[in-house]
Simulated assay, not measured.
Amino acid sequence: MRIGLSTRTARAVIAAVVMAATPVAAFADGTGTFYDRTFVLAAHEKCRLFRAPVVGALSAATLQSRGAALRAGTTEAALLATAQRARSRARQVSCANPELAMVRDRVSDAFAGWQRIPRMDFNGDHATWTADRVRREAATWRLVQTSVTGASPVRFGLSAAVPGSANVSGGETLSAVVSFVGRPRPYAARMVMRDPALAARPWLTAAGRAILPPESARQEVWSAGTAPAPATLLATGRTQGETWYFPTTGGDRLSRLDPREPFLIQFLFRDGSVATATFEAGDFAAARAFVALGTV
């Protein structure tokens, strides 16, 4: 027997059509949007409704709605339950259902405009990830957040090398660029963040702000190499700096953090000192999915 769409699922159909035609940043309204997007993605996994670029867009949108819900105070447990309900509903719907065919056709048509979006800001509580998909003939930031350590600017995110040149991992590379003032170069750099295996939930203050847990519940990801930074990756007004490259696993671990959480980039010097720049996890996972759609 063919199972039809309930009122709840019909709303997901409408939401799917709307989200494909509207920038991701326009959606930030919590668990209802998260349910809708999770349902549509689950229906795709079952029925193969969309081509890869559409799936990438929906994945970015779903991750961003998850971040919005967490920042609004929804718990991880509640979001997990919401996702389970959405996937359960998708399992019940027939792939031959005409409403799903409507989703496939209208979302794919509407996505033609969405795919041309070149830049997007993914705003967090205290910081912003800026994503840029414009094709360039110079080294560039595909995704970046800015911070400082002392008087020295630090940029962190996904950088892309000059087309045709050697790159650490090909494509975008997880990188930190720093321009130190009046001191020698560090000998190493590392990312520091909560380890979900040691602290399952983010550490929140009474005011609801996330902080780093004690050192015993943290994890580190060490840099994989360094090189002089291209001028196009430097902070405005700087003429020199170093790029520190990190393995892809660093981005994967960052994606699993609560969007409210801070993480650190630390630079280590031979005199034993450590220079620290603080960043916010924010919607890194959503922004990375948006960048993965490719250049325009």
Rank of each mutant, 00 (worst) to 15 (best):
L100M: 09
S169Y: 14
P213M: 10
R260G: 12
P163K: 01
G294L: 03
V192A: 06
T205M: 07
Q219G: 13
D36N: 10
G73H: 13
A16W: 00
I14G: 00
V107W: 00
A127W: 06
T38L: 12
S175F: 01
Y187Q: 00
M102H: 03
V154G: 07
W129R: 11
T146F: 13
F279Q: 11
L49A: 08
G32L: 03
D252M: 12
L41D: 01
T248H: 14
A112C: 12
A43E: 03
R51N: 09
A188R: 04
V107P: 00
A160C: 07
A68T: 15
L254I: 13
K46I: 13
G32A: 08
L174T: 06
P153H: 08
D29F: 09
A199M: 13
A138N: 06
F279G: 12
A43Y: 02
A188K: 00
A131Q: 02
R48G: 12
A101D: 06
G4I: 01
D109A: 15
F284D: 06
L234G: 07
G282T: 07
T75I: 07
V181M: 09
F279V: 10
W114Q: 12
A42H: 05
A81G: 12
E215K: 09
Y35V: 02
T9Q: 10
L174R: 02
W129N: 11
V40D: 01
R2W: 03
A160V: 14
Y245D: 09
D36S: 07
T173N: 15
D271E: 03
I211E: 14
I14K: 03
I211Q: 15
T249Q: 13
M191F: 14
E99W: 04
V168C: 04
A287H: 07
D109I: 12
T130E: 09
L174H: 02
P153I: 08
A72P: 01
P98N: 01
E45C: 02
D105L: 14
C95E: 06
P262M: 07
G113I: 15
V54Q: 01
Q84S: 14
G170T: 12
R91P: 00
P213H: 06
R238S: 13
R142L: 14
F246E: 02
C47R: 04
V291E: 09
A189L: 01
E137H: 11
P259G: 07
W114R: 13
G157R: 03
Q92V: 04
K46E: 14
R116F: 11
G4F: 02
L257A: 06
E242Y: 04
A275D: 11
V274T: 12
G67P: 01
A286P: 04
D283F: 08
Q92A: 15
L264K: 10
A20W: 00
A25P: 07
A52I: 03
E280D: 15
D105P: 05
G208L: 10
I265A: 10
S65Q: 12
E172P: 14
V296I: 09
V17E: 08
G4L: 03
A96T: 11
